[in-house]
C-alpha cells in the first residue's frame, strides 16, 4: 500500500500577515492535511488560516541556476530609490 504523501503547510498567524511556510506533514487527503495541520502546527494559537499543498505540486528553482536566475538583478541599481540624486530640500518623495 502507498504511504501517506507529504504536504507543505502554510499558516497565516494573524490577519494582515502573509501565509508563511511552517513545515510539512503526512496526510492521505486534503481534508486530513488541513486537519492535521491544525492539530500539529496551531496547538498554541499560532494561526488564523491554513494552506496545505501536496509537496509534489511545488516546483522549486534549482540552486545550481542561482547565477542565471538571481545575479542579473544585482546590478540593476536603478530599480532602487537610492539610485536617484535629489536635493535634501525635497521632502516626501
Amino acid at each position: 500500500m502507498r504511504n501517506w504523501p507529504l504536504w507543505e503547510v502554510f499558516v497565516r498567524s494573524k490577519n494582515g500577515l502573509e501565509h508563511r511556510h511552517f513545515g510539512s506533514l503526512h496526510a492521505a487527503d486534503e481534508e486530513m492535511a488541513l486537519e492535521n495541520a491544525r492539530d500539529v502546527y496551531t496547538r498554541r494559537s499560532e494561526g488564523v488560516s491554513i494552506w496545505v499543498v501536496e509537496s509534489k505540486h511545488i516546483t522549486a528553482s534549482n540552486p545550481e541556476h542561482h547565477g542565471e536566475l538571481f545575479e542579473p538583478a544585482q546590478d540593476k541599481v536603478y530599480r532602487h530609490p537610492t539610485f536617484y540624486d535629489l536635493p535634501d530640500e525635497v521632502k516626501h518623495m
Binding site: W4, H26, E35, N36, D39, V40, R43
Partner: peptide, 11 residues
C-alpha cells in the same frame, strides 16, 4: 497509527 493521528487524538 501515526504521529499526525496521535496528535489529533490527544488534542
Amino acid at each position: 497509527p501515526n504521529l499526525e493521528t496521535d496528535i489529533a487524538g490527544t488534542n
